[in-house]
């Protein structure tokens, strides 16, 4: 019984908690943080991301084309036999 009374009394404290006014001076801190942190516009972020994707794609394209041309040129390379016995260089 005493326990229930104590719980009810404690819960009613929630109704007695008053709203508190935030200090207007807090804005000075917000302003200084905005200035020091420097905001990167969203457009710049997207532009940077797009540039990175383009760079990676171009690299991939160039590498795959180089690999392709290497394999197609392989038949043009003269084949030398390891069993060549003549060492006459003159």
């Amino acid at each position: 019984m005493e326990r229930e009374k104590w719980i009810d009394e404690t819960l009613t404290v929630a109704d007695a908690i008053g709203r508190v006014e935030a200090r207007a001076t807090l804005f000075a801190g917000i302003k200084s943080r905005i200035k020091t942190e420097g905001i990167v516009p969203l457009r710049v972020v997207w532009l940077a991301a797009a540039s990175l994707v383009l760079l990676v794609a171009l690299n991939w394209l160039i590498l795959s084309e180089t690999a392709g041309s290497d394999s197609s040129n392989s038949s043009a390379v003269p084949s030398y036999s390891f069993t060549e016995t003549s060492f006459n260089l003159y």
């Binding site: 009394e9 404290v13 007695a16 908690i17 008053g18 508190v20």
Partner: peptide, 18 residues
Amino acid sequence: HPGVSLENKEKAQYLFAA
């Protein structure tokens, strides 16, 4: 908590602990 009066401070601490 600046919204809690001195007389309620102890009970408010129990409430917030809960």
